[in-house]
């Protein structure tokens, strides 16, 4: 085992310190070290988007990011989005639009939708589809996920 290093960062608005080994991913830091299990491991290879988090406001596949690279950054996970008005609106829209089936991809989708709507508050349907193309869902066929994001965007007015 490699020697651990202490890092400091902000997690969902809370200043946080953790001791991490160099090979640890940001996803493992969040799930295993800090115990927040809302962020999911779907593939571990950056292909499915289930592990999407916000790092300094931008969406990232946390399975591909080293925990050490979280030093000094601000991380927001699905657990932190509920406190954010846009995050809460998106979650509500996912519930109401029927965008959730097995739910395993949902946290990553919600975080990605937040990223999309922050950059493009009034996206077209095409932009929404492009915006979530890195997030796989096996249950819904994406229709109601797209609708939920449209609904959340509409609710911003």
């Amino acid at each position: 085992m490699s020697p651990k290093r202490e890092i400091a960062f902000t997690l969902n608005g809370v200043p946080t310190r953790a001791s991490v080994s160099p090979e640890l991913s940001a996803l493992a830091l969040i799930r295993e070290v800090l115990g927040l299990t809302g962020t999911k491991l779907g593939c571990g290879e950056g292909e499915c988007g289930a592990c999407t988090i916000l790092v300094d406001g931008r969406s990232v596949n946390s399975c591909l990011m080293f925990a050490l690279d979280c030093e000094g950054r601000s991380l927001v996970t699905i657990e932190g989005l509920a406190a954010d008005p846009l995050g809460a609106r998106i979650e509500q829209a996912f519930v109401e639009a029927g965008a959730v089936q097995c739910g395993f991809c949902t946290p990553g989708m919600v975080v990605q939708a937040h990223n999309l709507l922050t950059a493009h508050p009034h996206p077209t349907r095409e932009q929404i589809r492009r915006g979530i193309e890195g997030n796989l869902c096996r249950c819904t066929g994406y229709f109601k996920i797209v609708e939920a994001i449209e609904r959340a965007a509409g609710a911003q007015e």
């Binding site: 299990t37 809302g38 999911k40 519930v95 739910g103």
Partner: peptide, 21 residues
């Protein structure tokens, strides 16, 4: 009617605990 799934709020907020969790 269009009824939202009972388990959707937990899932959408990341609180659902799957076997992996």
């Amino acid at each position: 009617k269009r009824i939202a799934k009972l388990d959707a709020p937990e899932k959408a907020s990341g609180k659902t605990r799957y076997i992996h969790d």
